[in-house]
Amino acid sequence: MSEGTAAARPPALARRDGAMAPWAAPDARRWLQLGLAAIWLLDGVLQYQSVMFSKAFGQMLAATAPGNPAWIAEPITWAAGIVEHHLVSTNTAFATIQLLLGLGIAWRPTLRPALAASIVWSAAVWWFGEGLGGVLAGTASPVNGAPGGVIIYALLAVLLWPSGANRPLPAFVAARQVGVRAARALWLVLWGSLAYFAVTAANRTGQGLHDMVAAMASGEPGWLASINRGGADVLAHRGLTASIVLAAVLAAIAVGVFLPEPAVRATVLLAVVVSLIIWVVGQDLGGILAGGATDPNSGLLLALLALAYWPGGAAVMPHPADHSPASAGIAP
C-alpha cells in the first residue's frame, strides 16, 4: 500500500467482505474482554512455572478425580496419566494455548476465534483439570473456587461475545449478546449455585470453613497467612452459622439483578466485594504466591463477571462504530 493510498483511507481494519471497518475506542465490553485476556495471559505464564513440568502437575490433575462419578473420574485419570508420561510436551502445549488465548482475545482480528476457542478449552479444563470443580464430588464450596474458576472463563466468553450490533444497547454489558433475560438467568444460576454449595454437608460442619481457610496459610506470605489465621479464628466452631450467612448473601446477590436499578447497583457492588473477599481470604489470590497455582481461581473472575452486570455499563464510553457490524473491530 502506498503512503498516498494509506493517507486516503480511514483508520481501518480489513473485513471479510473486503471493506474497511473503522477502529473503535474500547468501550466497557472491550475493557472487560481485555481483562479476560489479561487473566488468560497470566494463566499461560503460570503454566510455564517449573513445578508444572514436574510429576506434581499430573498428580494435581489426578487428584481431582476422586469423589466424582466413574464416567467423570476415569477420563480425568486417563488424561492425568498422559500428562505424567509426556510432561514437557503437554504442559508446554497447555501453557502456549492459554497464552495464545490471551493474545488472541486482545488482538481484535482474532477476537471471535479466540473467544470460541477459550470456551472449548475452558470446558475441557473444567472436566480434565478441575473435575467439574468438585460439583459432583460434594466438595464444591464458593470459598475454594466452586463451581470451578475455569468455567467462569467460558461464561465470560459467552457474555462478552462481540456482537449484538444493530440492537439497542441493553441495560448492562452482559446482556448485549444473550439478551437481558438470559444474562440474568445465567447470573441467577451461577450465584444461586454458589449459595447452594455454601450449605452443602461438607461446608456446614462446625470446622469445615475454618479448616478450609486455615489450610490456605501454608506457604503464603506473612500478611496473607495472617489474614488466613484471623479468618480461621473467626470461623472456628461457627461453620454452620457462617455457611448460612454466606449462603444468604450469595442468594441475595443471585436475585438482586432482578430488582430496580439502584438495587442492582448495590447488588453488583456487593458481588464484587464478596468476590474479592473470597479471593483474598478463602483463595489466597489463587494460591499464586505459594507457588504451583495454575490460575487465579474464581474470585477474581467473579468480580470481573459482576462488572459486566453494572447497570449502564453497556452505554459507558459509547462510540458510533459500536452500532455497526464493525463493533470491536470484527466483521459480522
Binding site: E3, A6, R9, P10, P11, A12, A25, A321
Partner: peptide, 15 residues
C-alpha cells in the same frame, strides 16, 4: 503514514 496513521483525518471521531 507507514503505520497507517494518516487515516485519522477521515476516521470516526472517537478514533
Amino acid at each position: 503514514a507507514t503505520a497507517g496513521a494518516s487515516g485519522a483525518a477521515t476516521g470516526p471521531a472517537v478514533g
